[in-house]
């Protein structure tokens, strides 16, 4: 979360030292549970419930166990494919809809936007049962389609992209239209390239949200081959409740991709939160 003001030269005074001490203590307390998880993943079965914080005999056996006893690689692959497809298709559809809502003139545009906007107020847990009934009626229960298709549609992305397009200067598009380009060409060759910053920020955010999704995959799938990593570790914990070393290793593997994404794409994540938070 770098901003220019933090890089500015700071004089080391008593106040700075105090702020630094408070900040570091809070930071370490906040990440302590995650540190305990990662350390625990390298402990033996007896070590993991011992009072020592550090592993006395560090081992990677837990990870081998997790990958060999349950099809954990399959869970990871499922999560990856499902999250990636949702992210790409959702951003494509949302950017098309947002472009139309921001730029094209047609009767009922504002009304349509308000209707789409109002669906944002409803989140999955509230309409979980009827959504399940709809998806079951469509014959999508226990399939990749059931995991992916319903998760594509949410007004949040349309809303953010529309805000972005409204703020975008329209001269380039108008020049292309005057040259006789179709709306599709304008969207594809002018608007999409200009959207790259917001699309990259949103894609990180969407991928993260879908990788971490639990409730929908849990209710819509039952076959072990369709399990996502979150459903996998929840089931894993029920099976190996006493063996915390395995549970923590599995949790670490499930959390690691998101921690990596956070380290590499921190700026994008923060930017999309800021954008979302300001309208």
């Amino acid at each position: 979360m770098s901003t220019t003001d933090t890089r500015a030269r700071t004089r080391f005074t008593g106040r700075t030292a105090g702020l630094m001490a408070v900040g570091l203590v809070l930071a370490l307390l906040t990440i302590a549970p995650l540190a305990v998880m990662i350390l625990g993943a390298f402990k033996t079965e007896t070590d993991v419930v011992a009072p020592e914080l550090l592993p006395t005999a560090p081992t990677t056996d837990n990870f081998f166990y997790v990958f060999t006893e349950v099809p954990f690689a399959r869970y990871l692959l499922n999560s990856f494919v499902v999250s990636a497809v949702i992210t790409v298709v959702a951003l494509w559809f949302h950017s098309m809809a947002a472009y139309a809502l921001a730029r094209l003139r047609f009767r009922g545009r504002e009304a349509l936007f308000m209707i789409i906007f109002s669906t944002m107020l409803v989140s999955l847990p509230v309409v979980m049962v009827p959504t399940f009934v709809v998806v079951r009626t469509l014959g999508l229960v226990d399939s990749y389609g059931g995991l992916i298709i319903p998760a594509i549609f949410n007004a949040f992305g349309i809303f953010l992209l529309r805000q972005f397009y409204i703020a975008l200067p329209r001269e380039l598009e108008e020049a292309a239209l005057l040259d006789g380009a179709s709306y599709w060409r304008v969207y594809w060759n002018v608007v999409l390239p200009l959207s790259r910053p917001i699309l990259s920020a949103l894609s990180v955010f969407f991928f993260l949200a879908n990788w971490n999704a639990f409730l929908w995959p849990l209710t819509i799938t039952s076959s072990p081959t369709l399990r996502t990593v979150q459903v996998g570790i929840a089931g894993f914990q029920q099976q190996y409740a006493g063996n915390w070393n395995y549970v923590l290793a599995a949790s670490t593997v499930a959390a690691l991709p998101m921690l990596a994404i956070f380290v590499f794409f921190q700026r994008q994540i923060v930017e999309s939160i800021k954008t979302a938070g300001f309208r």
């Binding site: 979360m1 809070l26 930071a27 370490l28 906040t30 990440i31 549970p33 995650l34 998880m37 993260l208 990788w211 971490n212 639990f214 979150q230 570790i233 929840a234 949790s251 499930a254 959390a255 998101m258 921690l259 994404i261 956070f262 994540i269 923060v270």
Partner: peptide
Amino acid sequence: ALFVPYVISLVV
């Protein structure tokens, strides 16, 4: 550090 728990899934 203060933000990082947010990227971890609720199951974990």
